[in-house]
């Protein structure tokens, strides 16, 4: 019964998302594009944070590299969009393999600090390698050509781009979900709860962590590939540590223990920001207060708290 209601809610949300360009004002096409992309970014992060228990402070490195990869391919090679996204994923996966290989050996604070250092190294390179990255100004002025697969889509149209993003994020989420529900995902959860026990069971914790890290990096790269044409620019701030903090906030806000938590977090984050900045400049103040309350009292996030409450009521 309960799962049926949940499925019905989910179907409604998906139908609503598909219909956004027809039912909401034009501005919300942009808002929901952003929500979906950042949601994917946060969901990829949650694979290592919520599932595996590793707090990375450098996840923007993969997001940013993904955006630069797409921008560079569009500027220099003008490949179809799908090919750009594959390049983004490949570049981020490779980077995640290197950073992950060096980082997953460390625990807790040290892992957070090392990923922060690597993330900021990538930021510094993008900032100072002017001949390739155009320095702090970032890469701009690229335009989308064809989509690929012989599909005739006008990607420059924001509504079309929104539907493309929706489709790609949906597919990526299903893949991520399958990974989380697989035996591999179960082992990640076990690692979060008790790494010693997992290693006593004869499994190499480090390898599992590394694989999770690379998968997360790859999907962050995909999200980055989607954000560059949306923002029309790939710039160093996409790589900065403050960008790494965003998926952390979104995951906490939505709920780290649930697959859809980061998406809920992303939606709440972006919508609140849009609405609150319409009547006060102090969005960050509100965000800070919300975050403090979430960390202290609602550690399960909005989604977790809601579901708990619902279970309680429906008992």
């Amino acid at each position: 019964m309960k799962s049926k209601i949940l499925m019905a809610i989910l179907a409604l949300v998906i139908a609503g998302l598909i219909a956004v360009p027809w039912i909401a004002s034009y501005f919300y096409v942009f808002i929901f594009t952003e929500i979906l992309i950042l949601g994917l970014f946060a969901a990829s992060f949650n694979l290592i944070f919520g599932y595996t228990g590793m707090l990375s402070f450098g996840h923007a490195a993969f997001f940013g590299v993904g955006s630069y990869a797409t921008a560079l391919v569009l500027i220099h090679l003008q490949w179809p969009f799908l090919a750009c996204l594959l390049v983004s994923m490949g570049a981020s996966a490779l980077l995640a393999l290197v950073i992950g290989f060096l980082s997953v050996r460390l625990n807790e604070v040290y892992f957070a600090m090392l990923t922060l250092a690597f993330g900021m190294m990538v930021f510094a390179i993008a900032y100072q390698w002017r001949s390739v990255t155009n320095g702090s100004d970032g890469l701009a002025g690229f335009s989308l050509g064809s989509f690929g697969l012989g599909l005739d889509l006008t990607l420059g149209n924001p509504s079309v781009y929104y539907h493309v993003v929706l489709g790609i994020v949906a597919i990526a989420s299903i893949v991520l979900y399958v990974i989380c529900r697989s035996s591999f995902g179960m082992i990640l959860k076990a690692i979060r709860q008790n790494p010693e026990r997992v290693s006593f069971a004869g499994l190499n914790v480090r390898t599992y962590r590394l694989v999770a890290f690379v998968i997360a990096g790859t999907f962050a790269g995909l999200a980055g590939g989607l954000i560059a044409p949306f923002l029309r620019v790939a710039s160093p701030e996409l790589l900065h540590w403050s960008m790494s903090a965003e998926p952390v906030l979104m995951a906490i806000l939505g709920g780290t223990g649930y697959f859809l938590g980061p998406f809920v977090g992303s939606a709440v984050f972006v919508l609140l920001e849009t609405w609150i900045t319409s009547f006060t400049e102090s969005w960050m103040l509100v965000l800070g207060i919300i975050l403090a309350l979430m960390v202290i009292f609602f550690r399960k996030g909005l989604l977790g708290t809601l579901i708990d409450w619902w279970m309680e009521v429906k008992k």
């Binding site: 923002l231 029309r232 710039s235 996409l238």
Partner: peptide, 8 residues
């Protein structure tokens, strides 16, 4: 002072 912020 950021292009992405300005565009949005």
């Amino acid at each position: 002072g950021k292009a992405s912020v300005a565009i949005q």
